[in-house]
Design a protein around this nucleic acid. Structure first.
Length: 574
RNA sequence: GCGCCUGUAGCUCAGCGGAUAGAGCGUCUGCCUCCGGAGCAGAAGGCCACAGGUUCGAGUCCUGUCAGGCGCGCCA
């Protein structure tokens, strides 16, 4: 919010220069975007911009001279966020803030409360985020967990920036593949085992324990009526029963992780509604499909793919990509922009999907595909090998039992999606400052604790709308630094949304928590630095407002991540 | 062989073309008559894989090389 204000006054100054003919900028030429940064070195003021250096080559004027002109046009008056501005280095403009302005900013943050951090850059645009989309023949794994945490956070970030986010799970339930038949046979075997038969799970089948749960659910609901079905009847039936059972399990696991999808979109219904045929017809009509060797091919090489792809096999059955293109078509009818969150093992499908959409006449830029690298589980310092067929998958539910929802979410979101994730389960369980999620949550709990303490001491806790609090009393460097950090939240959220980089938020949260813990601890060695100062009610109120600001920002940032912001921390052993 | 991702402190990682490259862990020194120590302060530790290029300015952009991960089905 502070940066936005500085950008505004800077742009006004540049425009004033242009209007006055001081800078030889053509009337119509677009100005380079003005960016405001907080310099590392405090000697360079509170904020700085490099806009003069960006303008200099355009108008063939030395950057420092451009900067001087802009500074002279800055309007520094009552109510301006700036107290002073100076030219430095190769042409930076360094700003020093008006102290009163920071107080006003803090008051506004607290007033906005749980809405602080929201913005409206999206202007109501619909963004459909498709994520997880696990096959219906296995449980949600930790790898899906990462996709889930990332997808949900990306959707939240868009909600917070004025988009309308839709969370969608695509169910690959239409498969007639061998894989699904094997899956059905495996569940059928488990079902008969529960009835006392000595059936065995097929050699190439699925040995996982979760199949027993599905079989049991079927048994409990429908009884023993399928006990003696011949295999050729049992397999198609169980494919259906097992798929639905699996989906219910997946939904429960994701629910426990705090993820609720707006839609579970079934591939099967797509085929049933004729959407796949319609898509194929469209491709043929547009001349981007051709027949060869009995199969129907998509000429995806015409749209940047490295080879053409089969859409319909010689036996008449549609391939996965045919269904997937039909699916993307429905998504594009329901949203302005699409974001797919895929694991790294699917990155090879980016080219053909975008090519297919282009062949259908869509602007393929409407689809962004966010690839996240895979997850390695570490336990006792050892890698935990995971595999579906091996039967030793670690499910998301098991991980949640071990480390809890908050730690799992935070850990999944802490690293850039581009980086493979080593998930250290021992660290995630630890209840100390080593564990970043506890560190962050503790900062929030401490804020609550301070406020509670103040109430006990009989202090009237201020709010954002209580003008009697004198915030000019907040003059210590720690206090200034905290307020400036708090003010960054909306910008952090915007950047994280725009770049689909949710990992910025945990970073930000940890930075803020560190600033707060640092200041808090000084009160332990110097009573004058405590938030609650019974001898000085005015200062107490001012500092409490700062604490409320920290609490608000931590709570909001954690909410975006799907991590809870507890009012007090309770140990497992308490 | 081709494509995508990655290479930054001992380890795990941040770092939208800007000023002296940051954090956590680990190591070493300190801090509880406390607004909850689930915390804090300080120290040490870097040819940002390598070589070229673009730029007033490159960890960041481009090209090449090397190393690691993943993927290259008429599977889903």
């Amino acid at each position: 919010m502070i940066k936005q204000q500085l950008i505004r006054v800077t742009v006004e100054a540049v425009q004033a220069c242009r209007a006055a003919g001081v800078l030889a900028l053509p009337e119509e030429a677009p100005l380079p975007p003005v960016e405001i940064d907080a310099p590392r070195d405090p000697r360079f003021g509170d904020y700085a911009t490099n806009v003069a250096m960006l303008l200099a080559p355009l108008i063939k004027t030395p950057p420092r001279q451009v900067a001087e002109s802009i500074v002279r046009s800055l309007r520094i008056e009552d109510g301006s966020p700036i107290r002073s501005a100076e030219v430095a280095g190769p042409g930076f403009i360094n700003f020093r803030l008006d102290p009163g302005f920071l107080g006003a900013a803090l008051r506004e943050m607290v007033r906005q409360g749980e809405d602080f951090g929201r913005s409206n850059v999206g202007r109501g645009e619909r963004v459909l985020v498709e994520f997880v989309s696990a096959n219906p023949n296995g449980p949600i794994t930790v790898a899906h967990g990462r996709g889930g945490a990332v997808g949900d956070a990306v959707a939240s970030l868009h909600d917070w920036t004025g988009y309308r986010a839709l969370r969608e799970f695509y169910i690959n339930d239409a498969t007639n593949s061998l894989q699904m038949q094997t899956f059905a046979r495996s569940v059928f075997a488990r079902y008969r085992q529960l009835l006392g038969h000595d059936d065995r799970v097929p050699e190439d089948g699925y040995p996982g324990e979760y199949l027993i749960d599905i079989a049991r659910a079927i048994l409990e609901r429908d009884g023993a009526r399928y006990e003696n079905l011949p295999p050729d009847e049992a397999v198609p039936l169980f494919q259906d029963l097992a798929t639905h059972g699996m989906q219910a399990q997946q939904e429960a696991a994701l629910g426990a992780f705090g993820i609720v999808f707006d839609t579970w979109y079934s591939e099967k219904t797509l085929h049933a509604a004729g959407a796949v045929e319609a898509t194929l017809a469209e491709l043929q009509q547009r001349g981007h499909a051709y027949e060869q060797a009995g199969a129907l091919w998509l000429r995806s090489t015409a749209f940047g793919d490295d080879k053409d792809r089969v859409l319909v096999r010689a036996d008449g059955s549609a391939t996965y990509i045919a269904g997937d293109l039909a699916y993307h078509r429905t998504k594009l009818e329901r949203a302005d922009r699409l974001i797919n969150v895929w694991g790294a093992d699917h990155h090879g499908y980016v080219g053909r999907t975008k090519a297919g959409l282009a062949a259908l006449g869509f602007d393929s830029d409407r689809l962004d595909i966010l690839i996240y690298q895979l997850v390695r589980l570490l336990k006792d310092g050892q890698e935990f090998k995971v595999g579906k067929r091996a039967g030793n998958i670690v499910t998301l539910e098991e991980l949640l039992e071990e480390v809890g929802k908050d730690a799992a979410r935070f850990f999944f979101l802490m690293r850039s999606a581009d980086t493979p994730l080593d998930f250290d389960m021992d660290l995630a369980k630890r209840q100390e400052k080593d564990n970043p999620v506890y560190y962050a949550q503790y900062a929030h709990a401490r804020c609550c604790s301070v406020v509670a303490r103040a109430r006990e001491a009989g202090v009237t806790v201020p709010g954002g709308d209580t003008p009697d609090t004198d915030l000019t009393l907040l003059t210590r460097p720690e206090e200034i630094a905290l307020i400036k950090k708090l003010a960054d939240l909306p910008e952090e959220v915007r950047q994280a949304a725009a770049g689909c980089t949710p990992h910025r938020i945990p970073r930000y949260v940890l930075d803020l928590a560190a600033l707060f813990h640092g200041y808090y601890d000084q009160g332990n060695r110097d009573a004058a630095l405590r938030f609650v100062r019974p001898d000085d009610p005015s200062l107490t109120r001012a500092r409490l407002l700062l604490v409320l600001g920290v609490r608000t920002v931590l709570a909001n940032a954690l909410t975006v991540l799907g991590v809870s912001a507890p009012e007090r921390m309770t140990r497992d052993d308490e």
